[in-house]
Nucleic acid binder design. Structure first.
Lengths: 84, 84
DNA sequence: TAGTTATTTAGATAAATATCTAAATATTAT
DNA sequence: ATAATATTTAGATATTTATCTAAATAACTA
C-alpha cells in the first residue's frame, strides 16, 4: 500500500491516471498534456508503474501506457473498512 | 483532495487513522502506540486534522481525537470513477 | 549506414517532509 | 502559588522528492 499512496500523492500523477482512464496513451502523448519536461513525466510514469497503477507496452519506437485499476481494490477496501 | 492524499501518504498517519477507527483517543494514548516523539505525533495529528480526517476536542488537560470518515467519500468516489 | 524521433537514465538542485530536542502553553492537583 | 502533567510550538537537520538539462538507448526512415 505504501507505493500506492505515494504514487497517488501527486497532482501530476493523478492527472495521468485520469488521462489513461479515457484511453491508452504513449509517453509523448502524456507528456504533451503537461508543462513538465519529458524526463520528469517519465519519472512519474515509473512511480505509477512501480505502484502497479499502470502498465506499459513497447510498440515500435513508442511506449504505450494503460491504466490498471485492479490495484485500486486494496485501497477501496481499506477505505471501506474505515467507514464501518 | 491534495491535503487528503498527502495525509494518507504516511504509514504512521494511516496507523493513527486505524487506531481512531476503534475508539477515540487522546494525544498521549496515540503517542504511546509509536516509538516516535510526542512532538512528531502532534505534527502528524495536525496534518490529519488539516485534511479533515480527524477532529479534536479539548477535555480538561487532554485533547481527544476522533476519526472523521465523511471526508473519505470524495476519495471513494474518485476511485470508483476510475474503475468505470 | 546516417540521421531523426521516442523514451529513459544520470546527475544536479531546490523544496518538502519526518524527525528530534528544547521551550512554551494550558490544565489539574497539592 | 507551585509543582506536575498533557500537548503544542519553535527551530534544526537529514532524507525524500519533483524538477531540470545533458547524455544514452532504441527504433524507424531515407
Amino acid at each position: 500500500m505504501n507505493s500506492l499512496f505515494k504514487a497517488l500523492n501527486d497532482e501530476t500523477r493523478r492527472k495521468i491516471i485520469e488521462l489513461l482512464k479515457e484511453r491508452d496513451m504513449n509517453a509523448g502523448e502524456i507528456s504533451d498534456q503537461f508543462n513538465i519536461s519529458k524526463p520528469s513525466i517519465s519519472h512519474h510514469l515509473d512511480i505509477l508503474k512501480r505502484a502497479d497503477l499502470i502498465t506499459s507496452e513497447k510498440k515500435g519506437q513508442f511506449v504505450e501506457y494503460s491504466l490498471n485499476t485492479t490495484i485500486l481494490e486494496d485501497l477501496l477496501n481499506w477505505i471501506l473498512t474505515l467507514k464501518n
